[in-house]
Design a protein around this nucleic acid. Structure first.
Length: 314
RNA sequence: CGCGGGGUAGAGCAGUUGGUAGCUCGUCGGGCUCAUAACCCGGAGGUCGUGUGGUUCAAGUCCCACCCCCGCAA
């Protein structure tokens, strides 16, 4: 059993793996946590720590939140830990070579995609945005590139037809945690065989931009629905309601059967469902959120005169 | 001290220049119908975020303080 492990991660996906690691290693081992520094965020711009930092504090784990790993100070700190293994999951900082080289078993990363596809920051969102039906988690030996290291183990999963990124995220976090834990021993005894990634199948899952969040009803229904599912509930797809120019987030919607008359983005019916015309049909809005208001069923928005037949969404 | 929107029946909203509250939906009861997410009739349901606060003859409506929710930006 390993006795000295460093974990580097930020956010809920990382937290899931960290919790598992903490339970598995037990109190005999030293588990040191690295996570991104607290930053001013949210309404009021108050300094806010991430969930990984909170967990580390709560459990009394040694915690490091360097602004960068490239400083001499960070380097000295890390080397002094003399870690046997470094586990990384959506950390957000690039690991310098000294980190990669120092641990006896190197640095392994839990990445939420079937590498070499969807390397990068937003693999879970992108895989749904692209309409894929299968994804997974990869455990890999890190190298100096971004998610380019040799693969050690993978687990696949089907993406549900109506599954949103929030649901998939939670499932992959658990799969990732289990993939890591079930391979710890093999990492230690060297029985995992690193498989280099095939560059031919590589793709990059870039961070989600505001542009990605913008819905376009000029697209076919399938694409509109993928965009909604792939971004819900965070950061969420949105459109602009023409009558007041305000944003309206759309958390969920489904395909509407039939053919409809109207311009793309026009509300063509509100009863019994709120239907919005797309390039090749219509989508039925389910859960939405007007700017400044809370989430509500599309039907409630109609009751409050927020949406009516003829309204234009763009 | 980042910018901005909002807190009124179970839900979503309206409430004009201050005069004790309305709409759509839901809910309960009744009716029509082969039937219904449709229609008709009727009922219940609100100390209008909090404050033994201020102004006023009178405040959901103006002023003050505080709490909470949300959008942007990070």
């Amino acid at each position: 059993m390993m006795r000295n492990v460093v974990f580097m991660g930020t956010g809920p996906f990382a937290l899931c793996a960290l919790e598992g690691l903490w339970q598995t290693l037990g109190s005999d081992a030293t588990l040191t946590v690295y996570t991104k520094e607290a930053k001013k965020a949210g309404r009021g711009m108050k300094e806010k720590d991430g969930c990984v930092a909170e967990f580390a504090r709560e459990k009394g784990l040694p915690l490091y939140q360097p602004h960068t790993l490239r400083s001499e100070e960070a380097k000295a700190d890390f080397l002094a830990l003399e870690a046997e293994l470094c586990v990384v999951a959506s950390y957000g900082l690039i690991l310098p070579k000294y980190v990669l080289d120092a641990p006896k078993y190197g640095c392994v990363c839990v990445h939420a995609s079937l590498l070499p596809a969807y390397r990068g920051a937003a693999p879970i969102h992108r895989v749904i945005l692209d309409g894929k039906r299968k994804t997974g988690v990869t455990l890999m030996q890190m190298d100096e590139g971004i998610d380019t290291g040799a693969m050690l183990a993978t687990v696949e999963t089907e993406i549900g037809e109506t599954e949103c990124v929030g649901e998939l995220f939670d499932r992959l976090a658990v799969l990732g945690r289990d993939l890591l834990l079930s391979n710890l021993e093999k990492l230690e005894n060297g029985s995992l065989i690193p498989t280099p990634q095939d560059e031919a199948g590589a793709s990059y899952a870039a961070k989600i931009t505001a542009e990605d969040q913008k819905l376009t009803f000029e697209e076919p229904t399938d694409q509109v629905l993928c965009r909604i599912r792939g971004l819900s509930p965070v950061p969420c797809a949105y459109c602009i309601t023409a009558k007041d120019g305000k944003k309206m987030k759309i958390y969920s919607a489904k395909r509407a059967e039939g053919s409809f008359e109207g311009a793309c983005g026009e509300v063509v019916a509100v009863k019994p469902e709120v239907l919005v015309k797309t390039a090749d049909g219509a989508v039925a809005l389910e859960l939405i959120q007007p700017e400044g208001k809370g989430r509500m069923a599309a039907r409630d928005a109609v009751n409050g005169r927020r949406l009516a037949v003829g309204d234009l969404l763009s």
